[in-house]
Design a binder for these strands. Structure first.
Lengths: 127, 127
DNA sequence: CTTGCCTCTGACGTCAACGTCAGGTCCTAG
DNA sequence: CTAGGACCTGACGTTGACGTCAGAGGCAAG
């Protein structure tokens, strides 16, 4: 079967991140890579999902260090009280972020409404 | 009346940001400041709200440049087709961010569930 | 065997939103 | 009038997640 493993370029295109980023993830202990005799990295298919999970967590504002602390507990499925606390804490952080963003969006909606509504002393300029 | 205007330190404590940040906001054109004869900045009360709005927008991932482009259209309440488009675009971006965060939270919930549920081959370790 | 693309390891560059320090001025309480 | 805190303007430092470049080796095609 072909494609049971892939090299870094293919993983990059499949997961939508740069080659540099993948090397960085490895450096940060987020993504393990096998090596060929000549030292080239190779990855199994599930690495694509893993990279996308990493991207999600970055997107949620987590740092490499935090992600590095969470991922092992995802992999090993081993639950210590500490890891549970970490997961819960990050979940809570994301929750707060969502709340804040909704708040911000509402604020922006108010601004949009005021700039659209001429009753607010708003001047609408057309091209 | 006292406190109709305030100096930078007071604004900093009232709005919960650092003095340095306030100077930076001014530098970026986000926050105007009056000057005393000796060159000291003074701000009116509404500056507190303004700073908090700025913080909200930063919190939503907007850059200084983007905020600088949005704020005038908040102040002047002048609506050009371009400014409407900008506002709508940023609102949309925030919406996408919220969606992504909810997605991430769900993912994290799944992880939490799997680490908590022994049926998933998870090992629970107590102190 | 060579051409050309992919990959490797350093290692320095970048960018934003400030932090921090230096050296000097201002202002208010006592 | 003087001490000490608040303020001023540069200007350099910081941090994270990569970008980018240099120099060298690897690999499938022709």
């Amino acid at each position: 079967m072909m494609g049971v493993t892939m090299r870094i370029g293919e993983l990059a295109t499949k997961s939508g991140v740069s080659v540099r980023a993948l090397r960085y993830y490895e450096e940060q202990g987020l993504l393990a890579a096998g090596r060929s005799d000549s030292g080239q990295r190779h990855y199994p298919e599930p690495a694509v999902d893993r990279v996308q999970l990493i991207q999600m967590l970055y997107g949620a504002g987590l740092s490499s260090r935090t992600i590095a602390e969470l991922l092992p507990c995802v992999d090993a499925k081993v639950s210590t009280p500490e890891s549970q606390a970490r997961l819960a804490a990050e979940r809570a952080r994301i929750d707060e972020q969502i709340t804040a963003l909704i708040h911000t969006r509402d604020r922006l909606d108010a601004v949009i409404a005021s700039t659209v509504d001429p009753a607010n002393g708003c001047t609408v300029v057309h091209d």
